[in-house]
Amino acid sequence: MEFLNTSIGRKIVMAVTGLSMVLFAVVHLIGNSTIFVGPSGINAYAEHLHSMPLPIIMLFRAIMLALFVVHIVYAIQLTIENRGGRPTDYAVKATRKATFASENMIWTGLLLLAFVVYHLLHFTFRATPGLTLVNDAAGHFNVFAMVASSFSSIAGAGIYAVAMVVLFLHLYHGIQSLFQTFGLANGNTLPTITKAGALVALVLFVGFLAIPMSILFGIIKG
């Protein structure tokens, strides 16, 4: 398909997959915030998710995996092409609009990939050592105990804190970028879209960071 071979076509694919993952992150944060209710909140939320029909769960996972793979494959391909777009760098580097975030999308992206792999091994496949894997009084799996056992150490919480800084950088550039790519921005709206995108990135950063930090500093207890 010609659309997928051109510059703009592939950027639109990047934007669609990126937007889907941002929306997932928003829903993920809203769901995770049930932990602030206490063990009963997050455990009930996890039970609710796991009680959905298996085909729906597997379909959702397959879609997320596909979005992830497409986003990463295109990102690598576009980055290699773009590095070739200017084969020789200038002796004096004097960029004015580019940001640390915009220039390092591929690196923040690959770090996020590493984090997601770790995160899935950690809480989905529960394959990392040192997890408390027990059932609660109602006989359901005690998600809270597992999360609390992971985030009660500085190292356990620290990995997530670093990952959220990387996520913030990625979304700081990514969110405004997708509006521009969809052609939804104009000269008047782009500055506001850029600020709003940074705000969404900040809300996700603070929100996700609050969970490991609250457990590490004993603000939420079992």
Binding site: S7, G9, K11, G84, A185, N186
Partner: peptide, 29 residues
């Protein structure tokens, strides 16, 4: 190369062409 929305082009343009025209092209495309 491909656009990654750095907006360095707009800073470099001696005629002040705005990146809104890139957005318009994306929309047209």
């Amino acid at each position: 190369g491909n656009c990654t929305n750095h907006y360095e082009c707009m800073a470099a343009c001696p005629k002040g062409i705005n990146v809104k025209f890139i957005a318009r092209m994306n929309r047209e495309y």
